[in-house]
Design a protein around this nucleic acid. Sequence first.
DNA 1: AACCATGATGTAAACCTTTACATCGGCGAG
DNA 2: CTCGCCGATGTAAAGGTTTACATCATGGTT
Lengths: 340, 340
Amino acid sequence: MSNSQPATIEDVARIAEVSIATVSRAIHMPEKVAKSTRLKVNQAIAITGYTPNAMARSLRLGRSNMILVVAPDIGDPNFSSILVGLENEARAHGYGVLIGHTQNDAQRGLEYLKFFNSNQAAGMILFTGILPFGHQTLTARLPPTVGVFEPVFNGGIPYVGVDDVEGARKVVDLLISEGHRRIAFIGDSHTRLAYGRRRSGYEAGLAAAGLPVNRQLILEGDGTVESGRLALEQLFMRDDLPTAFMCVNDQTALGVTLGLKARGYDIPQDFSVTGFDDVPQAGFMSPSLTTIRQPRTAIGKHAMALLLELLSDRAPSETEILLRPDLVIRNSVGPPPPRR
Amino acid sequence: MSNSQPATIEDVARIAEVSIATVSRAIHMPEKVAKSTRLKVNQAIAITGYTPNAMARSLRLGRSNMILVVAPDIGDPNFSSILVGLENEARAHGYGVLIGHTQNDAQRGLEYLKFFNSNQAAGMILFTGILPFGHQTLTARLPPTVGVFEPVFNGGIPYVGVDDVEGARKVVDLLISEGHRRIAFIGDSHTRLAYGRRRSGYEAGLAAAGLPVNRQLILEGDGTVESGRLALEQLFMRDDLPTAFMCVNDQTALGVTLGLKARGYDIPQDFSVTGFDDVPQAGFMSPSLTTIRQPRTAIGKHAMALLLELLSDRAPSETEILLRPDLVIRNSVGPPPPRR
DNA sequence: AACCATGATGTAAACCTTTACATCGGCGAG
DNA sequence: CTCGCCGATGTAAAGGTTTACATCATGGTT
């Protein structure tokens, strides 16, 4: 039964007493083979436990049914649920998913690019906001690619994510409606498109309320906990404090929260803090964090659907899909303290 | 330069004015080819931008240089750093890493098994404490495999992880030295070997201190936040409280902490809580969590080294590698309250 | 001077598929 | 009865490698 070598199509053919061509057809174009033969073949497959050799198959075909998902950091709390969406959609269409982990190392990114020479993958999903290889000349020879979660910096790449501008807008609007007038934006960035969009939403919200945009209250950050803590320290050094901290993501908000608590302040009594993304830990923070929910599995699903559309080279119906962000109100926002 | 089709070995041969055999040798057995030819070949490779077709290669060779890493949940906070260790070691030996995500679905596990028929992967790292496919007959035809982080339930599979017994022992010893006598163990499990081992350490510690093992204080759990919260409620319903909660992992400890805080208790003034694993969030919890550090990248490194040893079918030097667990003392442990 | 070992290179088979093309038999129409 | 067509199946090539074996030239030994 289970010999040392995996069964090949030839083993099946021998047992079914047909040619290998017929076996192949019985598998891939069943309607082209007589019912009785089909039966024999299926029995033979069951007997041998044959599964087609994927490498030989895609060598012959010149294409594979694998999609490469490239992420700089597998540990990103947003990644896992997006992956689930990607995988489910992929498998529903007969595709599989490989995960590539670049650790922000262009060298590694390049290695994954080789996958496409060998047809080891047919397309690529980019979880990084940037092309994962240094600025090679090869922009031309890029495989079909879709960005998720964060628009791809180098431009021109279809993208699926949440509507960052509107999400940020919802946050500022909430803060303003609570009575805040001095709202800091923590985590501005020139390189991360998503953060830039969130900042636009922030500014739009202020403008709509007739509030000035105070450049002193906009601090840079890279979305890490540490960056939040750091920005907070800078603000305290300047002694020109806001009443609310609108953070570019939940990690940053955690940093701000920790810093504030370390200084002995209470949230939301003394200051309000908001995040963005609603990572799994957001509900467990103390206080639990008011933030924007990312529809993560939906993002994954749409992104994969878009990529498969690209692969079937029907012209893709759209090139940027923006999903609706939902505000999640928890306990980190309150009215500003009476005076300061 | 960059035509539409990727360059093949034949293109290189033509340009270098040698046969394809020589090109292949120049790449894989450079000492077998004259220095002058080697030079020509290398130039031709540079000109064409040739990279070998990995599929054709492993089709011919009957083996690949990819290692499949199977995890039920990519989002597990322990996974990412272990992966880094695995990857670094793999690439140092010319191997690459593929990540398989099973979502605890045996069907998916089986699909990954097909990788080995096609030689898409040469070996497998199991991050799940269990064989990721239902109980197939195929235990015999298992590819070279190493478990990480959690011993593999179905037995006989080499394993690299932390010494759970000793780690747990360090935790109880700490609690006992603080003066605790009634210590609950949250997260016992029949199916998760690591948890069983941690419980052994717990019992050993109690025994060494001459304390009784109270079965009422040992609660089941599956390592989720929710399981921690649940176990806590059970204890409160029984009205027979411990002074310290030793949790099987950090997530469980988070659940216990949240439950305790919801009931208005202070940690560590009213109760002490400990975790295990030192996940990245442990330091950010409030209070910050006293726990056991997993040497995650080291685990990955050793596991991959062991697997590569297995692959080279030198008999592996050892079949279980246990790394030293370190106690990380933070702020969730204190002496028990004066009376109760 | 004849021979052989040695080193460098080329030829062709094999790995496992898929599929264009050929073959074959049967059946309906003329 | 013959022809042509159609459906079912088989034959063989192709896809890009690696490598056993063959070939060839060179230089040293006898």
